[in-house]
Amino acid sequence: MSTVFFVMRQALTYSIPLLIVALGGMFSERSGVVNIALEGIMVFGAFTSILFINSVQDTMSGQLLLLLALLIAGLSGILISLLHAYASINMKANQVISGTAINMLTPAVAIYVARMLQNVQQINFNNTFRIPKVSVLGDIPGLGDVLFKDAYITTYLGILILIVSTIVLYRTRFGLRLRACGEHPHAADSVGINVYKIRYAGVMISGFLAGIGGLIFVIPTSTNFNATVAGYGFLALAVLIFGQWKPMRILYASLFFGLMKAIASTYSSIPFLLNLGIPSNFFKMVPFVATLIVLAFTSKKSQGPKAAGIPYDKSLR
C-alpha cells in the first residue's frame, strides 16, 4: 500500500505545476489570447526567483523565503507576459509568433544574465522548503501519506489557486467579461466592456501563474536551475486542451498526466509493474496516446474559446 501512496505523492510533483500553469493558460485563452509562451514564462519566473533564493539563502530559509520567491516568480512572469500582451493585443501581431519569440528569448536571457553575474550558467539553491510531515494531518492514513508527508506548501497553494480560479471565472463579473471577450469580443465591446483591458488582465494572470509554476516545477526537481523547465510549459498546454479550458477538468487532466508520468518513472521500483516486463517507453507514451484518443473522441464537442488567437479589431465591428 505504501508504494501506491508513494507513487501518488510523486505524481503530485508533476501535477501541481502542470495544474497551475494550465490554469494560467486558461485565463489567457479564455480572454481571447493564445498563449504558447507558457514555457518561456515558466523559465523566466523560475530564473528570477531562483536567483533571488540563491542570493539571500544564507540569511533566510524555509517557507517565508519560498513565499517571497513565489511572489518574485509571479511578478517577473507578469513582466515578461506584458511583452506578449503588447505584441498580440496592441500591435495585433500573430499570437503564436510572439509566444514563440518569448519561448526562445527567456532561456537565452537566463543563461546570459546568470553567466554575467556569477560566471556560471547553473544557479544553485538549497532546498529548505520541504515539510517532512505535517503534524496531526500527516497521521491520517492514506490521505496523510499522499498530501501531508514530504510535502511542499505549493501543493496547497495549487489547490487554492484552483478554487479561486473557478470562482473568479464563473462567479464574478470579471470572469463573465473575460469569457465574453474570448467568445465574442465585439458583443462584449458593444455593451461597454474594454476588450483590451480584459485581455491584458487575462494575459497578466497567465504570466503570474506560469511564473510561479516555473519555480514550483524546479524546486523539487534539481539542486540547481539550468535555464530550462524541460518542456513542461508545452505539456501544460496539452493539459489545458485535454481539460477543455475548464478548471475542474484541467485538474483531472493534470492529475492524470502526473500519475502517468510518475508511473513511467517509478515502475522500476514497483515489483508488480516491473514483472510485467513492459519497457518504460510504453508508460512514457501513455499520457500522449491517451490525449490523442480523448481528443479524437471529444473534438466534435471541443469547446475552445471562439475568439482565441484572433486579435481584436474595433473597426471590424
Binding site: F6, V7, Q10, T13, Y14, F217, P220, T221, S222, N224, N226, T228, A230, Y232, K261, A262, A264, S265, T266, Y267, S268, S269, I270, K284
Partner: peptide, 12 residues
C-alpha cells in the same frame, strides 16, 4: 539533463 523523470526514478 536534470529532469523530473530522473528525479522520480531515483526517488522510486
Amino acid at each position: 539533463e536534470a529532469s523530473p523523470e530522473a528525479k522520480t526514478l531515483a526517488a522510486g
